[in-house]
């Protein structure tokens, strides 16, 4: 799950370029209609704030629904992995479209139906007191490319709460530019678009990594970092020092998973899962290759037994979101 700060920053950048290009114009049109001379400035501020608040509420609800949709798909860890893979591929396509890598990728960014954009433009000219608020909510029907990538991320979170957080934080990020605070950003145009595109690509790569971890891939950013740490600290990875046993302990903590020792191929193994202070998704321990999924609450311990694969190798231990990982050596 990409960091919410990265999502906020992406919103900050995106808001300056794509959102304000269209939505800013619509809002300005709506404000111009409703500002009679007497309360002109007050109306403008009130209109802008009501636009932003209703947009934030609408997108947070949308994010909640998208996260809920994602959670319906997540029957198993494999289901989650496949969903994350699809989300990552889609986001890479959006990133490539924003970077104008090839016209083909433009199809990844869906163009909203024309009757909707015309209805929304009509709203901005209605002069109705509530036009800015209606407009703000209606922007969920005309999401720009980056917004569509964030919507995919919300689905991929597979959790209504996370989905709402992703879309809410992203829209919060797009808000300052509407208050005129980021006008300089709007003028930077193309440069900021490239940075936004690379932010989407970076999130796509992280999502791809999460998908790989969930599907039990031994290759991941986490395992590469763990190896690098081992090289730097001259440590000998668990298991390569020759000791293997038929019992193994997996320690679960805030830092993730620590596997006590390697296990012997083909043997009946007794694994003790001990959670000291792991309060996040670490509680949901998965060994995809063995189809093992257990939830161990903080302060709890549980024993499971399984038959180790006949072939030596490395089994990935992962949390339910593919963020925390560990490695069980089979020798």
């Amino acid at each position: 799950m990409p960091n919410l700060w990265i999502i906020f920053t992406t919103g900050l950048l995106t808001g300056g370029v794509t959102c304000v290009a269209v939505q800013g114009g619509l809002l300005a049109g709506a404000l111009a209609q409703m500002s009679n001379v007497q309360y002109s400035m007050f109306n403008k501020i009130l209109g802008t704030v009501s636009f932003l608040v209703s947009k934030l509420v609408a997108y947070t609800i949308l994010g909640f629904l998208l996260g809920w949709v994602g959670s319906r798909v997540q029957l198993s860890l494999t289901g989650q992995g496949v969903l994350q893979m699809l989300v990552a591929v889609y986001m890479l396509g959006v990133g490539a479209a924003l970077l104008d890598v090839h016209p083909f990728f433009r199809h990844f960014i869906l163009q909203p139906p024309r009757f909707l954009t015309r209805w929304i433009r009509g709203q901005s000219k209605s002069g109705d007191l509530f036009a800015p608020a209606i407009l703000g909510a209606a922007t969920v029907f005309v999401p720009c490319g980056t917004t569509q990538a964030m919507m995919a991320l919300a689905v991929g979170s597979g959790n209504p709460g996370w989905g709402a957080a992703i879309m809410g934080v992203f829209v919060l990020g797009t808000s300052p530019v509407f208050l005129g605070l980021g006008l300089a950003m709007a003028r930077l145009g193309q440069k900021v678009m490239k940075v936004t595109a690379w932010a989407v690509v970076a999130m796509a790569i992280w999502t791809l990594n999460t998908a790989g971890v969930m599907l039990g891939s031994p290759i991941s950013i986490q395992s590469a970092l763990a190896k690098a740490e081992c090289v730097i600290s001259f440590c000998s990875p668990v298991g390569e020092s020759g000791q293997a046993a038929d019992q193994v302990t997996v320690g679960i903590s805030r830092a993730g998973y620590s596997v006590s020792n390697a296990v012997r191929a083909g043997k009946e193994i007794k694994m003790t899962l001990t959670n000291t202070d792991g309060r996040g998704c670490q509680q949901a321990v998965n060994i995809p290759a063995l189809g093992i999924s257990k939830v161990i609450r903080p302060g709890q311990r549980e024993e499971i037994s399984f038959k180790a694969p006949d072939k030596p190798g490395k089994l990935q231990v992962t949390c339910s979101m593919g963020m925390f990982t560990g490695e069980l050596q089979v020798i």
Partner: peptide
């Protein structure tokens, strides 16, 4: 660089020139 651009172009052409515009 994004669907927002096509919405913008359609809007301006229709508002300023009174034509019917469909930007892909």
């Amino acid at each position: 660089h994004c669907t927002s651009c096509s919405m913008l172009i359609e809007g301006e052409l229709e508002d300023q020139l009174g034509v019917r515009a469909a930007c892909n």
